[in-house]
Each structure stands twice: as structure tokens, then as C-alpha cells.
Simulated scan of single mutants.
Amino acid sequence: MGRKRFITDSYPVVKKREGPPGHSKRELAPELGEDTQSLSQEEAQLELLRQFDLAWQYGPCTGITRMQRWHRAEQMGLKPPLEVHQVLKTHSEDPRFQFSLWHLYPL
């Protein structure tokens, strides 16, 4: 008997090109507050809050507001960024700032 054939044997081997320098699938999201110099102040603040939403170390963010999540993280001793709290206090009535990135998606 010959070698066992696999379905992948019928496809040619193609080597993928490298992406642009500095770009990798393994790159992590930028730290909170990084790379926001080119954005307007409001856009920079929203980006800071999006990064806070994506930071897993402060616990889940679905079903609660960002302020509730920030307070929960603080009570648990997780040291959430003070900049996030300041932005949330400044825009306490604006739903774009108060609700997490995922609030429009049904649970």
C-alpha cells in the first residue's frame, strides 16, 4: 500500500507574503490612551472608552454601563484607569459615552 492521501494533497502549497512592517495578527490592542494624538478630543475619549470595553482584566462589560463597570472594577481592587472615570463623569448624559461597545447587541 502507498502513502495515505489527504485532501490537502490536491492543493498547491502557497507561501503568504508578509504584511506591512509593524503589522501582525499577534499584535495586541494599544494600551489605554495610546495612539490618540491624531484624533479630535471627543474621538480620542471614545477610543479610550472602547479600549476600556475591550480590556478583559476589568471584567465583563455586557449588560451594565461603563460607569457601573468602572465602579465594580474599583471595588474589586482592579485599579481601572482614572482617565476613564473622568471622561465618564464629563459626559454623564451622553449615551455614546455611557454605554459599552456591545450595548446594541441583544444578550
Rank of each mutant, 00 (worst) to 15 (best):
A44S: 10
T65E: 05
R72E: 08
K89E: 13
L48G: 01
Q57H: 08
Q98K: 09
S40K: 04
K89F: 11
Q51V: 03
F52E: 02
Q57Y: 05
E47S: 04
E83M: 13
L82F: 11
G59R: 00
D94T: 13
R50A: 02
Q51W: 01
G59C: 01
G77M: 13
R69N: 04
K89G: 06
P81A: 12
E93K: 15
Q98R: 13
R72K: 14
F97G: 05
S40Y: 00
W70Y: 14
L54C: 02
F97R: 04
R50H: 05
F99S: 04
G63D: 03
Q68W: 01
H85M: 13
E74I: 04
P60H: 06
Q41N: 06
L88R: 09
L48I: 08
H91N: 14
R72H: 04
P80F: 00
L46G: 00
G77T: 12
T65Q: 04
M67G: 05
W102T: 11
S100F: 02
M76L: 15
D94V: 13
S92W: 14
L54R: 10
L88M: 08
T90G: 10
S100L: 05
Q75E: 15
H85R: 15
W102I: 07
W70M: 07
E47I: 00
S40H: 03
G63Y: 07
E83V: 14
V84I: 12
M76E: 15
M67K: 11
F52P: 02
W102E: 10
L46V: 01
D94R: 12
Q57I: 10
H103N: 09
W102S: 12
G63H: 05
R72F: 00
L82N: 14
H71E: 15
M76A: 15
G63K: 03
Q57S: 12
G63E: 01
T65G: 06
V87T: 13
L54H: 08
L78C: 07
Q98V: 07
G63C: 08
F52W: 03
L49D: 00
Q98E: 10
L82R: 14
E42H: 02
L104D: 12
L46K: 06
G63V: 06
H71F: 10
H71I: 12
E47W: 00
E43P: 00
E43H: 06
E83D: 14
F97N: 05
H103K: 08
E42I: 11
V87G: 07
R72A: 09
W56V: 10
M76I: 03
C61P: 00
D94K: 13
S40C: 01
H85V: 09
P60E: 12
I64R: 07
G59M: 01
R69M: 04
F97L: 05
H91F: 13
Q75A: 15
M67F: 10
